[in-house]
Design a protein around this nucleic acid. Structure first.
Lengths: 170, 170
DNA sequence: GTCTATACCCGGATAGAC
DNA sequence: GTCTATCCGGGTATAGAC
């Protein structure tokens, strides 16, 4: 029973503070000590409410998936892509935490990941394989942009258009 | 002058050992202490040969880019994609280090990144925007696979095919 | 020049007192 | 529920032995 489904009110406060800290100052700032500081308690006290940092991050990630799912209500491929990219640019540290690196699904709120994936499947007309390819393209564009991996001066709008144009034809 | 272009022979040995350690045991194992252990010296001694861990990683990354560039000699889109995916699966920890997270280009061997990008531009017929979209798709598929982000049982060969099919038409 | 020992500050986490 | 004290492991700067 590793699920982070039911959080006590106090745990929710801690998760909220963690997300704020992450978004404001980045992943290095999200330490148990800094978080305790923000909450006015000592780091070890956090462990009375949440089992550890992994669970804390998983709760933040679950919230992020739900929020992303709520954002992606566009119907066309362009709207969907725009919403996805806009979410990532508005919450870069959160997006990175949500999507980069291994993920212990046991710790997530059940269903949160699926809900975030659903719009892409819809946009691909129910074709799971096409939806995964589309997601890979969108995530690739997004994370490479956030990580500054494209050459300086690259026209990312044009690259997005090229890709979406390709997927529109499938 | 932060470039990692010229390495002394001893520094090369250290970088090689770092890469082996990374590939064998993953990123958490790549600590200065563990690396020193492997080399039979103490961690602080490494700093006489390389300025720090960032420079060490950058040297490993530069080697990785050169090796990837040498691997990607296919001409067709399918060959290129297959080579890219095969490299990542053969060297998952190295691929992750090379492509995930922020990258301080100052520390890289000049040109290594460009040489790895060249085959994609060629495959896209010189269209930079199309090449970036293609790279985003390939990286997205690759990193999501390595990170176990696709649902269990997802047919990744089919997703790759779908995507390549889309890009073939542009 | 090369390596060692030592030390500092950061991180996650635990035990036990109040 | 919160505290203090403590452990272990990181990166890394400094000082000094050979």
């Amino acid at each position: 029973m590793a699920s982070g489904a039911e959080l006590t009110p106090r745990a929710r406060e801690i998760v909220t503070a963690a997300r704020e800290l992450l978004e404001e100052e980045g992943p290095e700032a999200l330490s148990m000590r800094r978080l305790g500081e923000r909450l006015g308690i000592r780091a070890p006290s956090i462990y009375k409410h949440l089992p550890g940092k992994d669970a804390l991050e998983a709760a933040v990630i679950s919230d992020g998936f739900d929020e992303l799912a709520a954002t992606l209500d566009g119907t066309t491929l362009e709207e969907l892509a725009h919403g996805y990219r806009a979410f990532a640019r508005a919450h870069p540290h959160l997006y990175r935490l949500m999507t980069a690196g291994r993920l212990d699904r046991e710790l997530l709120v059940p269903g949160a990941e699926d809900r975030a994936a659903f719009p892409a499947i819809q946009a691909a007309g129910g074709d799971r394989d096409a939806a995964r390819a589309l997601w890979a393209f969108a995530h690739g564009m997004t994370i490479l942009e956030l990580d500054g991996r494209f050459p300086p001066g690259a026209d990312l709008d044009a690259a997005w258009s090229r890709g979406l144009q390709a997927f529109a034809g499938v």
